[in-house]
Design a protein around this nucleic acid. Structure first.
Lengths: 242, 242
DNA sequence: GAGCTGGCATAACAGCGTTATGTAAAAAAT
DNA sequence: ATTTTTTACATAACGCTGTTATGCCAGCTC
């Protein structure tokens, strides 16, 4: 029978190979920075050849893309631990703190997620960006709660979420690039920016100040103390759409 | 005589070599992106060997650093054409528009200026970052005028300038990375962000809206129409501290 | 004019991502 | 149980990168 062209795989790839390659790549990226992220180096550490990268990911870009997914998964994991309280503005600013905490905890990974697009010849696809933007939906919901509580002037929750995102992203980017030094260090600018943004979209100075302070108190318990790796254990790892 | 170790140069480097190398590199970066920025390619286009890059700049990093200086010079050139009017908040938001315009006009250069720190093995020195931060002084002065005009609540002009910088920088970065799409495209988020930031630091919604609209009308004449290259002609080019 | 000095060309080295080729192993078919 | 098929992976090569050792020769100083 040669009519039905159903190609069932005669030899399946070792399912561990994918995992170990990504794990090693993530460790290299975190420990030695992006310049040590080479196919040869990864293969050597894995005890295999560089071809493993190509059969499993189609090249270095594919492996990096997988790590970007992992990065967004970690960010979402942090977001998922932000409680929804009676003070939605405090929740909102805590999302900002979680975003920054995630970036500072995985600085190299964050750089690849958002900075790798133009440099290093690696570029994300439109779907990849959509995947990243999807993480914002949690923040949009929170913005809706702020609007419902009459804390925000504007009615466009998605727009507010984008404003917060771009603002915090810029601060974090410059912080990672060591651009923010005393007296306007990253902490100072960040705290001021949280209040400014909340006031700017409609909250009163007093309420915003109170909510920002409240979120600062909640940071450790709801964000810093949570285990950040949702997919580092066994089981299905990332999206397998590739 | 071998006591006086005054080394007068027996052969001076061709002063045109530096310029042409930087010019070619800038054109390559703008036209074909960062992946075409190779020592071999630049040397070939200049009709010289790769050694020219090393004797003149000490390596690719030095040449890239020179282009970063050029990038900051262009930004400062745009800033210098922002008029100081009786509406300092309009001036302030026009600085924001100028910043964004500069980034969108030289996207690859902007990416190298702020994104090259962690990727591509190239890193700016602390002095380089200080040089970039110095560009902010114009904005700080404008913030002082806003404070003097009782438009801003806070008294820390430098802090306000940093808040505007980080916020706009984040928006521009994500815009260049194609992260901002309809309905929350870059234009929408940018206009909303300008107003939000002005209101957030103390202006009233009405005044801020008016000033943002005013700066939008001034954009073309004071920013978009100016010649952006302050050092593309003859004469001393950049800082020669290297 | 002689001599030193440093710019630049040539060519090599180590590394990179990627790919052609061969082999061996696992699934499918008989 | 054997054969056939198909794929994962190793090996080695290609073209590219930044960088550097070597050598020549132009130009300044004396």
């Amino acid at each position: 029978m040669l009519c039905h062209t159903v190609k069932v795989s005669p030899r399946r790839s070792n399912p561990q190979t994918r995992s170990t390659l990504v794990d090693i790549a993530a460790r290299l990226l975190a420990d030695e920075g992006p310049q040590s992220l080479s196919a040869r180096r990864i293969a050597a550490e894995a005890g295999s050849s560089t071809m493993a990268v190509y059969t499993n990911f189609g090249g270095m870009s594919g492996l990096v893309r997988e790590m970007v997914y992992e990065g967004f998964a970690r960010l979402e994991a942090y977001f998922s631990h932000v409680a929804l309280t009676a003070d939605p503005v405090a929740d909102m600013t805590l999302f900002g703190r979680a975003y920054r905490h995630n970036a500072l905890t995985n600085p190299h990974l964050y750089a690849v997620m958002f900075g790798g697009a133009s440099l290093a010849g690696f570029s994300l696809t439109a779907e990849d960006r959509q995947y990243g933007r999807y993480t914002l939906s949690t923040v949009v919901e929170c913005a809706n709660r702020c609007i419902a509580a009459d804390r925000f002037r504007t009615g466009d929750a998605e727009l507010v979420a984008h404003q917060l995102w771009t603002a915090i992203h810029g601060l974090v980017t410059l912080e990672l690039g060591d651009y923010l030094i005393d007296p306007c260090n990253a902490d100072v600018v960040f705290e001021a920016q949280l209040t400014t943004l909340m006031v700017g979209v409609g909250d009163t100075v007093e309420s915003a100040t109170r909510s920002v302070a409240s979120s600062r108190r909640r940071l450790k318990k709801e964000v810093e103390d949570v285990r950040p790796d949702p997919s580092m254990e066994e089981g299905p790892r990332y999206k397998r759409t590739v």
